[in-house]
Every structure is written in structure tokens, then in C-alpha cells.
């Protein structure tokens, strides 16, 4: 009974986060300007990280936690580099 409650909640949450990933990807592809695309990419990274946490909750294993952490770090580095590129035209000064 309680397993079913949690199972359905995780499913609904995963669908909601999947929809969020699609919306972020649309913003990333559509733009219109470069900063909109980078913002969409950063949001996509955050939602992907949440999706991995939800997979971890569904399976009850903590393997997915490491993946989520790696995605969070990659997303941070990528967005910082891209924002720096937008501002100056080069990543390393």
C-alpha cells in the first residue's frame, strides 16, 4: 500500500521533471539570443540532475547519486565557461 503511494508519486514526479527537461530543451534550441540558450542549457542540467535523484529513489540504490553529482558539476563548469565566453568572447583571459 505505502509502496504503491511512493511508486506513483515517484512516477508523477519523474513525468513532471521530464516535461521540465523538454521545456528547458525547447528554450535552449529556440533561443532567440545566445544568453537564452545558455540559460536553457543550465536549466536542462539542473532538471537532468533531479531526474537522476528520482531514479535513485525509485530503485532504492545510491548509485544514481554519484551521477547526479557529476552532472551538477559538469553543468556548473559548462555554464560558467559559456557565460564567460558571452561576456568577453574568450574563455580564458
Amino acid at each position: 500500500m505505502s509502496g504503491a503511494i511512493l511508486g506513483w508519486s515517484v512516477l508523477i514526479a519523474q513525468l513532471a521533471v521530464a516535461a521540465a527537461m523538454i521545456l528547458a530543451a525547447i528554450r535552449m534550441l529556440k533561443g532567440p539570443r545566445a544568453q537564452d540558450k545558455v540559460l536553457g542549457l543550465d536549466t536542462l542540467y539542473i532538471t537532468a540532475m533531479l531526474q537522476f535523484l528520482l531514479f535513485g529513489i525509485r530503485t532504492g540504490t545510491s548509485i544514481y547519486f554519484e551521477m547526479a553529482l557529476v552532472i551538477a558539476i559538469l553543468g556548473f563548469v559548462a555554464t560558467v565557461a559559456l557565460a564567460k565566453f558571452l561576456m568577453r568572447g574568450e574563455v580564458i583571459e
Binding site: 513532471a16 528547458a24 528554450r27 540559460l39 536549466t43 528520482l54 529513489i57
Partner: peptide, 21 residues
């Protein structure tokens, strides 16, 4: 409580991306 927190978090995230669009 786990289900409640999951749904709150997921729908806040979804709301954020709806705003993004």
C-alpha cells in the same frame, strides 16, 4: 512525507521551466 516532498519539488521545477518558456 517522501511523496509530498517529491511532488512539491517536481512541480516547482516544472513551474520554473514553464516560466522559462
Amino acid at each position: 512525507p517522501v511523496s509530498a516532498f517529491l511532488l512539491i519539488g517536481a512541480f516547482l521545477t516544472l513551474t520554473g521551466t514553464i516560466g522559462l518558456i
